[in-house]
Design a protein around this nucleic acid. Structure first.
Lengths: 249, 249
DNA sequence: GTAAACAAAATTTTCGAAAATATGCAAGCT
DNA sequence: AGCTTGCATATTTTCGAAAATTTTGTTTAC
């Protein structure tokens, strides 16, 4: 390894994959933006092959779309897509949670309570600006995963994970236009309690509402960005951190 | 294009992808088998990069598993996986069909009836040995797709498609050990009729049974192949989902 | 003025070798 | 013997250039 700093045990492609994912979720690479190899090679300082590898993974995650022999683009966003995504997530998440509540053991309950505690502590520590933090995303994601982790269906969990990651992109998008997070701590606590209490009806209703309301919240705060007329997406930051419009290039 | 015969408008990687998929589904490349670049390069007569591209796609389809920096293997099979797959398929297929029946229009009905007709004609033409035929797979797949195509959820359809393809591998596997297909034409016809009649309760029950019975049929006829003692096709995974007991070398 | 045809440029796809990493094996040590 | 260490081999990962393809721009014919 001649590289200055590469995460241990990871390939170069894996590293680029990770960085590109952050850039897409963080809208440094905006929705619908075309991904040219030349430009990407400069930005990430790797070869064509390595880029292609990373792009293939992103295509699998549906954060990037492959256009036959005409290159790649960042997956577009739309209110329709968000609504569809939300509906499918509700279906999958409800089923996973239902099964987890039937099959979860003590260790499962302990993991939920433990992760919730970590989440609470994190909130106390960083106040109400946590939503920009990658660490918060990780903890929040871990909490929701812990709820369904006992569902004993690898396939369901995998599908869920992918949908969750895509939804994360929308959440992050709207968080830039908000000064305050809505009161989700209360929701999370209620969810945790009903799940551990194995109150199936209530728990499923809560998780359903939780997902849908988050989605509505995104549309409320960032929906204006989704309109085709708004070209705010095609913003691209150059190396100096300045924002330049890609179209003019 | 200097190649002798490559499908029009397709890249070389796309062609290899298609061939490898057939080989995996057809068990020319057996479950759990390690995929070495050297050997694959000889078999498919393409370069490393092209192979890697095709493999990435297969990983996305979950027909191949990537093992960090230790290469690729054909996705293992197991009864547990088939059962899990079946459960998730039932969940997704039911929801997709439910929505399609609520939103489908005349064109949707026409497509179902038309595809069913093509399926019947094909059966009449080739008799009871069709199950080995790729053409049958295509028509059969088209019929099931037509049922849910009006569900108006791209995400649900995409998930469904992927699960269907994976299940196809199991079906093909068992079809090698059967001289006669069970009476699915009757089932297909009943499904078509209740769906077009918008009899939601009955249609959902029929599709549910159809999927589960096909799965049970696979286990009955090919389940012996899944046994751990046999050929090492069943590989165990540790917590990280990584295959631990490599058998084939 | 519009469309078709061609050439030039831009971009992606493919290649095989070189670098990096993992695996297997033998020697040395406890 | 059992376990680690070091080296040779096998395999994957990465590279940059060459080939193939798509896009763009210009000219010509109708």
């Amino acid at each position: 390894m001649t590289e200055t700093s590469r995460r241990k045990g990871e390939t170069r492609a894996g590293d680029v994959l990770h960085r590109m994912r952050l850039d897409i979720v963080g809208c440094v690479l905006g929705p619908g933006e075309r991904l040219r190899f030349e430009a990407l090679r400069d930005r990430y300082a790797v070869s064509f092959s390595t880029l292609r590898e990373a792009l293939s993974c992103l295509v699998a995650e549906e954060l990037v779309l492959a256009q036959g022999q005409r290159g790649f683009i960042v997956a577009p966003i739309s209110i329709d897509d968000l609504n569809d995504l939300t509906n499918v997530r509700v279906l999958v998440e409800r089923e996973a949670l239902r099964r987890a509540m039937l099959r979860g053991d003590d260790a499962w309950e302990a993991a939920i309570i433990g992760t919730f505690h970590r989440m609470e502590r994190f909130q106390q520590r960083v106040g109400n600006q946590y939503y920009l933090d990658e660490e918060w995303s990780a903890i929040h994601g871990a909490f929701h995963l812990s709820l369904v982790s006992a569902c004993q269906s690898p396939n369901l969990l995998q599908i869920r994970e992918k949908l969750f990651a895509r939804a994360h992109r929308y959440r992050r998008m709207s968080s830039q236009f908000r000064t305050r997070w809505r009161e989700k701590d209360v929701e999370h606590k209620a969810i945790m309690e009903t799940v551990v209490a194995r109150d199936e009806g209530e728990a499923l209703a809560l998780i359903d509402r939780h997902i849908r309301e988050t989605s509505e919240n995104v549309i409320e705060h960032a929906g204006h960005l989704f309109a085709p007329s708004n070209a705010g997406w095609l913003l691209e930051r150059d190396d100096s951190g300045r924002v330049s419009n890609e179209v003019t290039k």
